[in-house]
Design a protein around this nucleic acid. Structure first.
Lengths: 231, 231
DNA sequence: TGAGCCTGTTGCGCTAGGTCAAAATGCGGT
DNA sequence: ACCGCATTTTGACCTAGCGCAACAGGCTCA
């Protein structure tokens, strides 16, 4: 199967790359499809490829020694992921699970240096991405250290609505199926607490819930809640 | 002032670098000394240099909008730090505060690419370092999400004793001044709770405390406490 | 169309650990 | 040797949020 360059051109990663380079890059890639619930790669497996998500949605999870799971990150179309090897890791540190039917391009890890050389913009973008990952991680640590659960959930929901929001009549819809459990694993709490918080928000008109659904109705008030200490 | 290559040779970063390259690298560096309590760079300042700690000890802190502080990382001799710019950040994301009198080498950020090119080992090490940072951050997130405070403190103390431990007659001493407050900011809790925990450990013979001091007497039992759920 | 399952809701009790307050212990400077 | 400050300890109290449990509403698959 062949991926046309028009499909990936919209991603900022390839913003300023000449057509010829982009085509060469795509020629080296192998597409990889994963149905909902299927993994692109598993935690601990040898890192043989790195990936670019074309469409769909993934969650990267880690499981602790005692079986607890956390969601490290949500992967959106246009994101590079699974480039562990680039940071000199032999195996994938997490599992990339597709939440909905997803399509990614894959390249063998050996091609990473070549991938970066293909264009100075690409190299910059890739480093940028890594820097952002670090930032996000530290932000999360800061939030978990200093904020109570409700504010953390607010931040997380807002982030999701920005990264994966589709505007609707009465608000911004999170554009992929997400459970209370998922949100709990992203904020370091339990699904019970998340459920309670969302219920409270719903009766205040902040959001609108549903089975694996979430609609942010009033992002301004939600933002206010996320920023200041008391409601 | 001139730094001799023998001083830095012991750092694994320069393990396999030829003398000539190492000398050239040092020739481009400017030493920077900071007294205890002084900052090498401040959060938000333009990232003009990257650093290598020669000796001393630093803590990298971040302050939240509402004035709360957390400790992102402790920097040990031989560690690269402040290479924000390499990840395409314009400013330093945190403040690097020296805990004791410290000496670092600094290079202008423009030299980063050149720095990496100097030796393939160096490039690998640097990427390695970034990968480790990400790992550490995720480990911390995982711990904060799933473990109770006592286990987190145990992990943190053990990590410190491994990274900055000096073996003494009756245990391993954390080889720089560290307060209960510091440990609290590393684990996401309060100094009160840390104090209580350490007191309890002290009466069980696990550690020996003191003003800005900490000695791990029984790392085996401490490790056991860190690994399993109940005492 | 119904059975079963997955996801979400809600009540209740409990406790880890935060907050507030006060006292004790060093430690450095004069 | 003494004063003042920073750090630590400890107690008492209180609450956010976790664990447990029961139930309800959809969705899926036969």
């Amino acid at each position: 199967m062949k991926i046309d360059k028009s499909v990936v051109r919209r991603f900022s990663l390839f913003d300023k790359m000449p057509d010829s380079d982009l085509e060469a890059l795509l020629a080296q890639a192998t597409p990889r499809r994963a149905a909902a619930g299927e993994a692109m790669f598993e935690q601990g497996a040898e890192a043989t490829h790195f990936f670019l998500l074309i469409n769909g949605r993934l969650k990267v999870t880690q499981v602790t020694a005692d079986g607890q799971q956390i969601i490290v990150r949500v992967v959106h179309p246009g994101d590079l992921f699974g480039f562990a090897r680039a940071l000199r890791r032999a195996d994938y540190p997490g599992t990339a699970l597709s939440v909905i039917e997803s399509l990614a391009l894959t390249w063998p890890t050996e091609l990473w240096p070549q991938f970066l050389d293909r264009s100075p913009y690409l190299a910059v973008s890739a480093l940028n991405t890594i820097g952002q990952r670090l930032d996000e991680a530290h932000t999360r640590i800061r939030e978990m250290s200093t904020q109570e659960v409700e504010r953390r959930v607010a931040h997380t929901v807002l982030r999701l609505s920005q990264q994966a929001g589709r505007t609707e009549d009465n608000g911004v819809r999170i554009d992929f199926p997400i459970t209370r459990q998922d949100i709990a694993e992203m904020t370091g709490t339990t699904l019970h607490t998340v459920s309670r918080i969302l219920s409270a928000w719903e009766s205040n008109g902040l959001v609108e819930g549903g089975r694996q659904k979430l609609l942010v109705r009033d992002s301004v008030r939600l933002q206010a809640l996320a920023d200041s200490s008391d409601s």
